[in-house]
Amino acid sequence: MIERTPILNIVTHTILFTGLAILVVPIYLVIVAASQTLPDVMAIPAKLLPGDQLIVNLKAAWVEAEFATKFTNTLILATGVVVGKLVLAALTAFGIVFFDHRLRMPIFWMVFITLMLPLEVRIVPTYAVAANALSPFQSILDVTGISWLINATTGVEVALNWNLLNSYTGLIMPLVATATGTFLYRQFFLTIPDELVEAAKMDGAGPLRFLREILIPLSVTNMAALATIMFVVGWNQYLWPLLIITDPAYGVAAVELSRLVPNMNTTGGDIPNWHWAMAGTLIVMLPPVAVVILMQRWFVRGLINTDK
């Protein structure tokens, strides 16, 4: 707005600067600690200027937490979540927007309801399912008497078992089972003019060809938005990997980070290696923060359109 407000402008800048400082100072303190030796970190009064040990500590944390393996795993997890989400959501939205069948709305609601309950609140039974992903079908067969029937007629005991603990599939699948992306795609698909569908049909394109050659190229920006968010979500997973991964070969970065500092209730007076832990914190933070900063435009757009 065109008006001269010199005093208010100073106030505005002060408020914004204070806000920035509140968000940045904690990370500054992490960087300071990550660049000092342990005695310097523990010094009283605290030394508030960075030291010269940053590279040394980053290397130590990288080796100590085996971040080489963990980063690969985390990358697989995040990529799996991104790809799984993009593909499944696009397919589902396509199936409920462009086809004329009675189950459209029931399917939409079935998918939509999954938005309500995050993984954290159904964590215990989800873990049980991950221990045997076929247990739902086993139970259904048992209850309906089909397993008894099979057992009686062929002598084969029905025992379906597919253990997902300590596997990439187990890490990724439950995180993909939400409606986040389906909703975003659906809203976008609904804006596509009918004429486009008619034209494609007239030219002899079947549904799959229409999806591949018209819808997918049109939804590239949507996909970029969704991918950014899902990458951040996937990278930052903590509770689920903590539960189902016991084999260090499949460990992810966020969980390993928490192990750099032993639990305060069980440490017998030992000083944790804060300088390494803070270096590790920086390492784990960096990839998603970089993605959000680089992809800012798509990220903001995706966040606002997906409701999370």
Binding site: P26, I27, L29, V30, V232, W235, N236, Y238, A254, V255, L257, S258, L260, V261, A277, M278, G280, T281, V284, M285, P288, V289, V291, V292, L303
Partner: peptide, 11 residues
Amino acid sequence: YAVAAPAIGLA
């Protein structure tokens, strides 16, 4: 927004 909860917790 992009910082992982455990990283915030530890910091």
